[in-house]
Design a binder for these strands. Structure first.
Length: 101
DNA sequence: GCCATGGCTAGTA
DNA sequence: GCCATGGCTAGTA
């Protein structure tokens, strides 16, 4: 599937220390309303393709995974790359959101 | 609201 | 086919 493959390509390009949004990826892959599908791809194909899945967050700059089920891991992976979280557990997207050239 | 996916029944043949 | 189910979100209030 084209969408699926595009999503994977895009995610692979996210540089270390940067993040992108589900919707952003969906739009880049040609389906502005496919945010949920992007989440699906992440959920199912992250391991197989060795994707930097932790660099994908929701539009508010927060981690979407539930506490105790991925949240902590994702947060620590991002912090290890220099991404900072404020007291609300959010990332300042003006500083860390990546967009391709 | 949106939309692709996956699981699980109808309902033909 | 139908229907529930997501690692979601634009656009009101």
């Amino acid at each position: 599937m084209q969408f699926h493959d595009d999503v994977i390509d895009i995610i692979k390009q996210i540089p270390e220390g940067m993040v992108v949004t589900y919707g952003q990826i969906a739009a880049m892959a040609g389906n502005p309303r496919g945010a949920l599908q992007v989440a699906g791809v992440l959920h199912s194909s992250s391991d197989k393709h060795g994707l930097p899945w932790h660099r994908v967050v929701n539009r508010l700059g927060e981690i979407s995974l539930p506490r105790g089920s991925g949240y902590e891991l994702q947060k620590s992976l991002l912090e290890a790359e220099g991404v900072e979280f404020n007291r609300n557990g959010r990332i300042d997207m003006r500083l860390f959101q990546w967009s391709p050239k």
